[in-house]
């Protein structure tokens, strides 16, 4: 009886420590985000700057309201840019996972001669920093007449050595026996990929999708080079319009940033269980 009591006390004490630590990190991670969101509602521009030096930065202060949001919508076609970013990100991901996983499947599961050259070459390509290639790439897409389209923001990114490698690692671990059984049943190699490998590989897809989405959603350097008009302009570039050389309207900037961030955060909140479970069984597993 006494022993159980002691255990219980110990357990509670442990939980308290645990929560204290959690709350400590919680504050560190949430504060700047609270600052972003709260500032987006502060209507007095000068108030925002003044608040930055004190705890007021994280508290409502002065007139609060939706004025900054109204401003953003008045100053630009936010929905258009948001849609552009969604189109670019989603298309890159969708086409990308098809292309990358097919190539990875061929490398991992099929016998063909070139494989022994392609695999190491591909691994070497992982470390090429994309930024170093942007200028030759610009000259190239210009020759192809792709400037100022969605395509130019999608196509060059649908094959990504790093993602191919992630898929490859995962596929490699799948037991050979499944394939052999399917072959005996008369299935084609593509059929095996589609009917057997893909259903088993949902986890690795989840991690590639997240990796890819984060990279594409925030990219700014490439759109600067290859887009011209507003028709295909993505969010991060559109946001630059709020930075004027001599006077930044912080309220508008934070309102924009909040609107660009919250949808993704919401997605994560909704799907985090599936997401974590899926990574748990990918190629990066313990």
């Amino acid at each position: 009886m006494k022993r159980i009591g002691r255990l219980k006390v110990k357990k509670i004490r442990q939980n308290v420590y645990h929560y204290v630590l959690l709350i400590f990190f919680f504050l560190i991670f949430i504060s700047p985000i609270v600052l972003m969101i709260l500032s987006s509602f502060k209507e007095d521009e000068i108030q925002i700057i003044k608040d930055m030096s004190s705890i007021q930065a994280f508290l409502p202060n002065g007139p609060m309201g939706f004025e900054n949001y109204v401003n953003v919508f008045q100053r630009m076609n936010f929905f258009k840019f948001f849609t552009n970013s969604v189109i670019i990100t989603v298309s890159t991901i969708v086409v990308g996972i098809c292309f990358n996983s097919m190539f990875a499947y061929a490398l991992a599961k099929l016998e063909f001669k070139a494989k022994h050259i392609l695999l190491p070459a591909m691994i070497a390509l992982i470390i090429v920093p994309g930024e170093t290639l942007s200028i030759p790439l610009l000259l190239l897409v210009n020759k192809m007449g792709l400037i100022d389209t969605y395509a130019v923001q999608i196509i060059p990114f649908v094959a990504e050595p790093f993602f191919i490698f992630l898929f490859y690692q995962f596929f490699k671990e799948l037991p050979k026996e499944i394939m052999e059984a399917a072959i005996i049943d008369g299935s084609s190699y593509f059929g095996i990929y589609r009917r057997i490998i893909l259903p088993l590989s949902k986890p690795v897809f989840a991690s590639v999708i997240i990796f890819n989405a984060l990279g594409r959603w925030g990219d700014i350097m490439w759109p600067v080079l290859v887009t011209r008009g507003e028709d295909v302009r993505p969010l991060p570039l559109a946001m630059q319009a709020l930075f004027t050389i001599n006077r930044n309207n912080w309220g508008d900037i934070f309102a924009f940033a909040t609107m660009a961030t919250l949808p993704i955060l919401l997605l994560f909140l909704l799907f985090q269980k599936q997401f974590i479970r899926s990574i748990a069984s990918t190629g990066v597993k313990g």
Partner: peptide
Amino acid sequence: QEMTAWFMSAPA
């Protein structure tokens, strides 16, 4: 196999 491999690698 070789054909399928090339066919599936080609896009990427």
